[in-house]
Design a protein around this nucleic acid. Structure first.
Lengths: 148, 148
DNA sequence: TTATGTGCAAACTCTTTGCATTACC
DNA sequence: GGTAATGCAAAGAGTTTGCACATAA
């Protein structure tokens, strides 16, 4: 599938969702979704605002915040917070994953490990804790920075 | 070992560390350490400030922030951040553990699983990522809230 | 004695909110 | 036409910083 079609699927999902909730859609929401779709990295609200302004110069930062809250509540995007830095957002591409963060260059790497998922489920079960979601961040030095 | 002696060990550790860095110690730092020692939960800077004011009414919030940064840098305390809430601190009692957070009552439970630690190490190794530390938070519903 | 730590207040950063206006359905 | 979303600016919350003073070494 080409990227344009893929983006349209996300936008369609957004429209359906908005309708389901009895709300109104807006160009701004779609533009923000598009920015997240095109981004290869995790973006802060400020970064998203900068990028979306290229599509729509008059969009306000408050709209970005409001839209991100909405999209996160509806699970169309995920966020990750790291130390004191502000939250970073990524499009929810349907595949759960965890993160490694390089403490030297700040790069965020993604990974997924099935056994890890199972193990967490087992740990929660043993504690009679109903596991809904989790966030695992491995902090360290990425391969590139190690070889410097 | 009784609690008083145990606390003194932490204070001794602080003094040694401060000396090693060529810095000066202060009553305030020891008081903050004591508050963390006595706390059974994870505390925000604001909460720590409230508690330490009972020992020293004139201590400023800025001192709490500065001290926490210092103690965290020196690994005498750990912090954990959860959603939009402000960072919470706990004394580093020498035993690494991870956290479960109840999304209903906000309670933080601690756990430790050896296999989980090993697995993370293996995952990092496979990615040639030099693992230094990690943060795993399981979000869900604690046993108490489930039975409500 | 002298550099570090403190307390206070101001400054800063990030995020949220109130309100008049716009635009979707 | 009615209601939700937006843009702007102001307000809030949390944290950091500058500076004069206090204090440990």
């Amino acid at each position: 599938m080409n990227a344009k079609k893929e983006l349209e699927l996300y936008i369609e999902e957004l429209r359906t969702l908005v309708k389901k909730r009895g709300l109104k859609n807006s160009a701004q929401r779609e533009q923000i979704l598009q920015v997240l779709f095109l981004a290869k990295e995790h973006l802060t609200p400020e970064e998203i605002h900068q990028r979306v302004k290229k599509l729509n110069p008059s969009i306000g930062l408050a709209t970005v915040y409001r839209t991100l809250s909405f999209l996160e509540k509806e699970h169309l995007v995920n966020s990750i917070s790291f130390g004191n830095e502000s939250k970073k957002y990524e499009l929810n591409r349907g595949e759960h994953h965890d993160h490694m963060i390089c403490l030297e260059c700040g790069k965020i790497l993604e990974f997924y490990d099935e056994e890890l998922e199972r193990l967490q489920e087992a740990i929660a079960q043993k504690a009679s804790f109903k596991l809904l979601t989790h966030e695992l961040i491995l902090y360290g030095i990425c391969p590139k920075c190690q070889s410097k």
